[in-house]
Amino acid sequence: MTTSDHKAKGDAPDKAPKGREGSSFGIIVSFFLIGFGLSMAVGWIAFPKLLYSEKQQPFDFNHAIHMDLVDEGCESCHLFREDGTYAGVPTLDQCSGCHEDAQSDSPDEEIFVNEYVANQQEVPWLIYSKQPDCVFFSHAVHVKTAEMECAECHGDIGTSESLKVYRENRITGYSQDIWGANIAGLKKNTWDRMKMDDCGSCHLERMGSKGPCFQCHK
């Protein structure tokens, strides 16, 4: 049936169809909004929860206590080897110098001494800042040459009294700290994210260029 047909027969077709069309449009819009809203909820709320699994460190560690006991700040334990390479997380050998026996009644230290020091087994720490193998990064260049503070990338971990929960990305296997806690990738502090763009923006700001690909991807 065409409009011209209605006119020809002298019907009053305008009212009733208009009402039908209006309600139909409303339903469509509602469904659109429902879909929109649901997917927003999934994307912003459910997805981040599903994406990360929570893992506990082998035992808790108090950085603040240790910082009070050492003279050279972070580098006292997170040291540079003689050849300039960065040693990363302290090894059992470094820790057991003091922790051959428990120094306190902390249950975490008890776990360390009884399960790891006694068995000469390295602690399988989950590393928040672990980057993929295809990235070359020199701590020496950043800390020694450029004189950057550790906290600039890692945050003020030195004053923390306990380790935060390790959130592991179920797809990549890396820590949530690389992408950052904000699922949209927004950051307030320099240490909120550790993606390539974050390296790039800092290099651009301080060195005038993001640098060539092979500078990090050797």
């Binding site: 879909g35 929109f36 997917s39 990305n169």
Partner: peptide
């Protein structure tokens, strides 16, 4: 409309972008 709404909504979430990044790392 529900589907289009869901698709449009998804585009306004970090999901597709984050998922693409994660898959490339995977």
């Amino acid at each position: 409309a529900l589907g289009i709404g869901a698709a449009a909504g998804t585009a306004f979430t970090p999901l597709p972008w984050k998922l693409t990044d994660d898959l490339s790392i995977w």
